[in-house]
Amino acid sequence: SELMNSSKLIRMLEEDGWRLVRVTGSAHHFKHPKKPGLVTVPHPKKDLPIGTVKSIQKSAGL
């Protein structure tokens, strides 16, 4: 199965306009000026399962 580095996923979010608002432990929480909701990324993780990545991307509207 495909894995993604959390840094790469965070870069994709930031390029889309998401900004880090809070860190709780290894959970990084992002908000967007125009899009609704809060997106949480486990970080640092070298090997996020593709299912997790897809669900984060979906929440972020990517």
Results as ranks from 00 to 15, higher is better:
residue 48 L to G: 01
residue 57 Q to C: 12
residue 54 K to Q: 12
residue 25 G to N: 15
residue 2 E to S: 11
residue 20 L to Q: 06
residue 27 A to V: 08
residue 3 L to E: 11
residue 5 N to Q: 11
residue 4 M to L: 07
residue 33 P to K: 09
residue 14 E to A: 09
residue 45 K to L: 07
residue 29 H to D: 07
residue 56 I to L: 03
residue 24 T to C: 08
residue 44 P to Q: 03
residue 61 G to R: 05
residue 12 M to G: 04
residue 27 A to C: 09
residue 8 K to H: 14
residue 36 P to I: 08
residue 24 T to A: 11
residue 35 K to L: 03
residue 59 S to Q: 15
residue 19 R to Q: 11
residue 23 V to H: 07
residue 20 L to E: 05
residue 32 H to E: 00
residue 59 S to K: 15
residue 37 G to P: 03
residue 38 L to N: 08
residue 29 H to R: 10
residue 1 S to L: 12
residue 21 V to N: 06
residue 57 Q to I: 15
residue 23 V to C: 07
residue 18 W to N: 00
residue 35 K to Y: 02
residue 40 T to L: 08
residue 28 H to P: 01
residue 30 F to A: 00
residue 38 L to E: 14
residue 21 V to W: 10
residue 45 K to N: 10
residue 11 R to N: 11
residue 8 K to E: 14
residue 55 S to D: 15
residue 18 W to R: 00
residue 21 V to L: 08
residue 39 V to E: 01
residue 18 W to D: 00
residue 50 I to V: 12
residue 8 K to C: 12
residue 27 A to W: 09
residue 9 L to M: 09
residue 20 L to W: 04
residue 25 G to Y: 13
residue 62 L to K: 03
residue 46 K to M: 11
residue 17 G to M: 04
residue 41 V to W: 01
residue 7 S to D: 13
residue 62 L to M: 07
residue 50 I to K: 08
residue 1 S to A: 10
residue 22 R to M: 14
residue 4 M to S: 11
residue 8 K to G: 12
residue 25 G to S: 13
residue 47 D to Q: 15
residue 15 E to I: 09
residue 60 A to P: 02
residue 38 L to R: 10
residue 45 K to M: 11
residue 41 V to Y: 01
residue 6 S to R: 03
residue 19 R to K: 14
residue 13 L to Q: 00
residue 31 K to W: 08
residue 21 V to C: 09
residue 43 H to Q: 02
residue 48 L to Q: 01
residue 17 G to S: 04
residue 35 K to E: 01
residue 58 K to N: 14
residue 23 V to S: 08
residue 20 L to R: 10
residue 56 I to K: 01
residue 13 L to F: 01
residue 42 P to Q: 05
residue 19 R to L: 12
residue 36 P to N: 07
residue 18 W to H: 01
residue 11 R to Y: 11
residue 17 G to D: 06
residue 42 P to I: 04
residue 52 T to C: 08
residue 38 L to D: 08
residue 35 K to C: 03
residue 32 H to Y: 01
residue 11 R to M: 12
residue 17 G to C: 06
residue 62 L to G: 03
residue 18 W to G: 00
residue 44 P to A: 04
residue 10 I to F: 03
residue 39 V to C: 04
residue 37 G to D: 05
residue 59 S to R: 13
residue 57 Q to R: 09
residue 14 E to N: 09
residue 39 V to D: 00
residue 28 H to S: 05
residue 42 P to Y: 04
residue 34 K to S: 12
residue 61 G to H: 05
residue 41 V to T: 02
residue 28 H to W: 09
residue 16 D to G: 05
residue 55 S to K: 13
residue 9 L to A: 04
residue 57 Q to W: 14
residue 47 D to I: 15
residue 50 I to E: 15
residue 55 S to I: 07
residue 23 V to P: 04
residue 30 F to M: 06
residue 31 K to Y: 08
residue 26 S to M: 12
residue 44 P to S: 06
residue 25 G to A: 14
residue 1 S to I: 12
residue 53 V to K: 02
residue 16 D to Q: 05
residue 51 G to W: 13
residue 49 P to W: 05
residue 11 R to I: 12
residue 5 N to K: 06
residue 54 K to S: 08
residue 16 D to F: 06
residue 50 I to F: 10
residue 25 G to W: 12
residue 19 R to D: 07
residue 56 I to M: 01
residue 36 P to G: 08
residue 17 G to R: 03
residue 12 M to D: 07
residue 17 G to I: 00
residue 48 L to E: 02
residue 15 E to Q: 13
residue 10 I to L: 05
residue 54 K to P: 02
residue 18 W to M: 00
residue 33 P to H: 12
residue 14 E to M: 11
residue 33 P to S: 08
residue 7 S to R: 08
residue 21 V to K: 06
residue 17 G to E: 05
residue 11 R to W: 08
residue 43 H to W: 04
residue 44 P to W: 03
residue 41 V to N: 00
residue 36 P to D: 09
residue 9 L to I: 07
residue 12 M to T: 08
residue 61 G to D: 05
residue 1 S to P: 12
residue 34 K to W: 13
residue 33 P to C: 08
residue 1 S to E: 10
residue 62 L to R: 02
residue 32 H to K: 02
residue 3 L to W: 08
residue 37 G to K: 06
residue 31 K to V: 14
residue 56 I to W: 01
residue 10 I to G: 01
residue 31 K to M: 11
residue 62 L to H: 03
residue 21 V to T: 10
residue 59 S to A: 15
residue 37 G to C: 06
residue 9 L to H: 01
residue 4 M to Y: 09
residue 43 H to V: 02
residue 53 V to C: 05
residue 8 K to D: 15
residue 19 R to W: 13
residue 44 P to E: 03
residue 3 L to F: 11
residue 38 L to M: 10
residue 61 G to C: 05
residue 19 R to H: 11
residue 57 Q to N: 05
residue 13 L to I: 09
residue 43 H to L: 02
residue 30 F to S: 00
residue 9 L to G: 02
residue 47 D to A: 14
residue 10 I to C: 03
residue 8 K to P: 03
residue 60 A to R: 01
residue 47 D to S: 13
residue 46 K to Y: 12
residue 31 K to L: 13
residue 30 F to E: 00
residue 52 T to F: 14
residue 45 K to Y: 08
residue 34 K to M: 13
residue 49 P to Q: 06
residue 40 T to Q: 10
residue 10 I to E: 02
residue 1 S to C: 11
residue 12 M to V: 09
residue 30 F to L: 05
residue 16 D to K: 04
residue 38 L to Y: 13
residue 22 R to Y: 13
residue 41 V to M: 03
residue 52 T to E: 07
residue 45 K to C: 09
residue 27 A to P: 01
residue 42 P to D: 06
residue 58 K to C: 09
residue 40 T to E: 10
residue 13 L to N: 00
residue 29 H to Q: 14
residue 17 G to P: 00
residue 11 R to S: 13
residue 5 N to G: 13
residue 21 V to H: 10
residue 59 S to W: 06
residue 47 D to M: 11
residue 13 L to M: 06
residue 16 D to M: 05
residue 2 E to G: 12
residue 60 A to G: 04
residue 11 R to K: 13
residue 55 S to A: 15
residue 36 P to L: 08
residue 37 G to L: 05
residue 24 T to N: 12
residue 42 P to H: 05
residue 7 S to Q: 10
residue 14 E to P: 00
residue 41 V to I: 06
residue 22 R to A: 12
residue 6 S to T: 04
residue 24 T to Q: 11
residue 24 T to S: 11
residue 27 A to T: 09
residue 58 K to P: 02
residue 35 K to H: 03
residue 2 E to F: 08
residue 59 S to H: 11
residue 38 L to F: 09
residue 27 A to D: 11
residue 1 S to F: 06
residue 48 L to V: 06
residue 6 S to H: 03
residue 16 D to L: 05
residue 4 M to P: 05
residue 1 S to M: 14
residue 55 S to P: 02
residue 50 I to D: 15
residue 43 H to F: 03
residue 45 K to E: 09
residue 16 D to W: 03
residue 7 S to W: 15
residue 22 R to H: 13
residue 33 P to N: 08
residue 62 L to P: 02
residue 13 L to V: 05
residue 9 L to F: 03
residue 45 K to S: 07
residue 43 H to S: 03
residue 6 S to I: 03
residue 33 P to W: 09
residue 33 P to L: 08
residue 59 S to V: 13
residue 6 S to W: 04
residue 41 V to R: 00
residue 16 D to H: 07
residue 8 K to Q: 15
residue 56 I to A: 02
residue 27 A to Y: 15
residue 42 P to L: 05
residue 40 T to N: 07
residue 7 S to F: 15
residue 12 M to W: 07
residue 29 H to L: 12
residue 51 G to A: 14
residue 55 S to F: 11
